[in-house]
Design a protein around this nucleic acid. Structure first.
Length: 553
DNA sequence: GCCGTTTTCGGCCCGACTGTTTTCAGTCG
């Protein structure tokens, strides 16, 4: 069992206890325990009770509960709290802007036992009468509920990947003479999707024979479609067709409606197709991979053979924007460096949090200097592999970075990101961002909109203005590769490239495993038509050093 | 519930901000 799963249990326990008005220090203890468990590198499941109790804030009671979780898979006391809390009240924890205390009031004072009831109460203007609530809170709750609604049933590409590949492998192994393949949003590499779609010439019976073995699975059948419902997993949809029409159906189910309409207006699917590429070659078009079948303009480019060679996972040469135990990472600087080198990359850019990010262990100036010393020592030991001195500097309320210029000057490069006060008008957001972009020490603008896919909208930005400003001030725009961020969004890449912008696919890794997230950034960037020439992290070590030297002038 | 001792219990707690208050509780990253 992973530390994260155990941590989530303690986190939920703390929140439920708070809703039920338990002793706040007791609540805090479980909450801190959850935080600690998330932040340690070693697997708690493999520790002895004595080892567990050496973790700060993990005492006898928490150790006992961890053991119970490991032995039984659950926690009796959590179950008790869950039983005396309506499921809808637990769900309210996902509403941004309200926490356990306010939820308790909404439940006890207002009698709201579900998100639906809460929404109704907001619309009836009944929250303003509650102590601690007002018109603005009511408004923000309604907005948050609308956001949750619009994302319900969606999953991230990375979440879909696990299920999709398992199912694909299984069916291809058991039925090697049949055709089964990805289609729909998953094949198009959409960052989020409402279902994992397959196209197959298998029968419903054949599919059920295999997928029926999944515990607690259920099915919904239609004439040419089988929906597979797996508990705690994305919806899986099988589109059924006969073998002869497989490629045709796959083509028509893995592109945007706009793309297909434009295609049908000008081109024809050949009578006989042996592989999907023929659909394009027979029309004198360059092959357009599924992830690019979004806009109509891509067809024009394919007609004039102008599609460039797009970035591939292997084109990432350096790992930029990472965290270590100096701030909120779970592995040490040396572990991160070794992992990066062992995975075949040429350099690591360590960008721990800056001093304002106290919640994330942001670095005071003395710690920055200590880290720089360690980097220099490691660089001597690890050459030709190189670690670059960087920082993820918070963009403060007024747009300034949170160190003195003398300190900022000691970094090889600076990633500037907004982490606090995310609730802003577009005007305010742009003012902060533009000020940060104009700062001579800003090398990369980190996760430009602050969005978290399916869980947080991010502050509103004027994309064109933002991109233009980055180009004008020679600031690299990050494509944060975390599958929940993928920020800048792929849909703005073509504009960014037209304007001559440079981007950087960065994993924002908080652990050694986190380095592998670059893959998701590459997949999303492919949709935007990114070439490796325009990606900073595709530069080899020498080129990267030249870039930084040039930038410093 | 955990910690750190001033060994038997008192004090814990990041800091900014927001929306609510009319001095601060709740939330967030």
């Amino acid at each position: 069992m992973s530390n994260q799963i155990i941590a989530d249990i303690f986190d939920l326990l703390a929140k439920l206890m708070e809703i039920h008005g338990e002793n706040s220090f007791k609540v805090k203890t479980y909450s801190i325990a959850a935080f600690r468990l998330e932040k340690i590198a070693d697997q708690v499941a493999l520790m002895t009770p004595e080892q567990m109790s050496t973790i700060p804030n993990i005492g006898a009671a928490v150790v006992q509960k961890i053991q119970e979780i490991l032995e039984t898979g659950g926690l009796a006391v959590l179950q008790e709290y869950l039983e005396k809390t309506p499921p809808g009240v637990v769900e309210m924890l996902s509403i941004k802007g309200i926490g356990p205390k306010k939820i308790a009031l909404l439940w006890k004072e207002l009698g709201a036992e579900s998100i639906g009831e809460l929404e109704y109460a907001c619309n009836e203007n009944r929250l303003v009468a509650l102590k601690g609530f007002g018109a603005k809170t009511q408004e923000s709750i309604l907005k948050s509920i609308a956001f949750i609604r619009s994302n319900q049933g969606f999953c991230l590409w990375s979440e879909a990947e696990t299920f999709a590949t398992q199912i694909w492998k299984k069916l291809r192994t058991v039925y090697p003479d049949n055709q089964t393949d990805y289609t729909g949003d998953y094949r198009r590499q959409m960052p989020t999707m409402s279902s994992i779609d397959f196209i197959t010439d298998l029968s419903i019976e054949q599919l059920k024979a295999q997928l029926g073995r999944i515990p607690e699975v259920s099915f919904t059948e239609e004439a040419t479609q089988l929906s597979v419902h797996i508990p705690n997993a994305p919806l899986v949809l099988f589109q059924l067709c006969n073998a002869e029409e497989f490629l045709l159906h796959q083509f028509y189910s893995s592109a945007s409606p706009a793309f297909l309409e434009a295609f049908d207006n000008k081109f024809k699917v050949p009578e006989i197709i042996r592989d999907e590429a023929e659909i394009f070659t027979q029309n004198k078009l360059q092959y357009i991979p599924p992830y690019l079948r979004e806009t109509t303009s891509i067809l024009e480019k394919a007609a004039t053979q102008e599609l460039p060679m797009l970035i591939q996972p292997g084109d990432i040469k350096g790992i930029i924007h990472n965290h270590s135990t100096y701030s909120d990472g779970i592995h040490t600087l040396e572990q991160m460096a070794n992992a990066t080198r062992d995975k075949g990359y040429e350099y690591l850019v360590i960008s721990d949090h800056s001093k304002t990010a106290s919640y994330a262990g942001g670095l005071q100036v003395e710690k920055v200097m200590a880290q720089h010393e360690e980097i220099e020592k490691l660089n001597q030991k690890m050459a030709p592999f190189k670690i670059f001195k960087s920082i993820e500097s918070d963009i403060l309320g007024d747009g300034s970075l949170d160190y003195e210029p003398e300190v900022l000057a000691t970094f090889d490069l600076v990633v500037a990101s907004v982490h606090s006060n995310l609730k802003m008008t577009e005007e305010k957001a742009m003012q902060r961002l533009l000020t940060a972009i104009q700062n001579q020490y800003t090398t990369i603008l980190g996760h430009p909109t602050g969005r978290l896919l399916l869980s947080r909208e991010g502050y509103p930005v004027d994309y064109k203005l933002l991109i233009d400003a980055c180009v004008a001030h020679n600031v690299v725009i990050e494509i944060n590769a975390h599958p929940r961020r993928l920020d800048l969004d792929w849909s703005w890449l073509s504009y960014a490239m037209e304007q001559g912008a440079m981007v950087s696919i960065d994993p924002d890794a908080h652990s050694m495993d986190g380095i592998d997230l670059v893959k998701y950034g590459v997949l999303a960037s492919q949709k935007g038509g990114l070439t490796k020439e325009r990606n900073l992290s595709s530069m080899g070590l020498a080129e990267f050093e030249r870039f930084l030297a040039e930038r410093k002038k």
